[in-house]
Amino acid sequence: MTDHSAGHSVSVAGVIVDDDGKALLVQRRDNDHWESPGSVLEVKESITDGLLREVQEETGLIVEPVALTGVYKNMARGIVALVFRCQAAGGELQTNDEAKAFLWASPEKVSTMVDEAFAVRVLDAMRAHHPGPEARHHDGVQHIPRLDEAS
Results as ranks from 00 to 15, higher is better:
residue 68 L to C: 09
residue 46 S to L: 06
residue 116 E to H: 14
residue 139 D to L: 11
residue 65 P to S: 04
residue 70 G to E: 13
residue 67 A to K: 00
residue 58 E to G: 11
residue 35 E to A: 08
residue 23 A to T: 04
residue 42 E to D: 12
residue 31 N to Q: 10
residue 42 E to K: 07
residue 1 M to P: 12
residue 113 M to N: 11
residue 144 I to M: 15
residue 148 D to R: 01
residue 25 L to Q: 06
residue 99 A to Q: 12
residue 139 D to N: 13
residue 33 H to N: 11
residue 145 P to Y: 04
residue 3 D to G: 04
residue 58 E to W: 11
residue 143 H to S: 14
residue 24 L to G: 00
residue 44 K to M: 10
residue 10 V to I: 12
residue 9 S to D: 08
residue 56 Q to G: 07
residue 107 P to V: 00
residue 63 V to G: 09
residue 10 V to F: 06
residue 39 S to G: 15
residue 95 T to F: 13
residue 9 S to T: 08
residue 67 A to T: 00
residue 54 E to I: 07
residue 33 H to Q: 14
residue 69 T to P: 01
residue 110 V to R: 14
residue 51 L to D: 00
residue 151 S to E: 12
residue 70 G to D: 11
residue 141 V to T: 15
residue 31 N to F: 11
residue 83 V to D: 01
residue 137 H to Q: 11
residue 70 G to T: 10
residue 79 I to S: 08
residue 79 I to H: 07
residue 33 H to K: 13
residue 9 S to L: 06
residue 132 G to C: 08
residue 120 V to L: 05
residue 107 P to L: 00
residue 63 V to N: 03
residue 97 D to R: 12
residue 52 L to R: 03
residue 76 A to Q: 07
residue 80 V to A: 00
residue 123 L to I: 06
residue 66 V to R: 04
residue 108 E to K: 15
residue 66 V to Q: 01
residue 30 D to S: 10
residue 86 C to A: 10
residue 110 V to G: 12
residue 11 S to G: 11
residue 104 W to K: 07
residue 58 E to P: 09
residue 108 E to C: 09
residue 147 L to A: 00
residue 65 P to W: 02
residue 150 A to W: 05
residue 99 A to F: 06
residue 132 G to T: 08
residue 21 G to P: 01
residue 102 F to M: 05
residue 127 R to V: 02
residue 43 V to S: 14
residue 127 R to M: 07
residue 7 G to W: 02
residue 20 D to Y: 01
residue 145 P to G: 10
residue 49 D to M: 07
residue 21 G to Q: 00
residue 133 P to Y: 02
residue 148 D to Q: 06
residue 124 D to R: 07
residue 29 R to N: 14
residue 59 T to H: 01
residue 36 S to A: 06
residue 81 A to Q: 08
residue 63 V to H: 04
residue 63 V to R: 02
residue 80 V to Q: 01
residue 83 V to K: 01
residue 14 G to P: 11
residue 46 S to A: 10
residue 46 S to M: 12
residue 132 G to A: 07
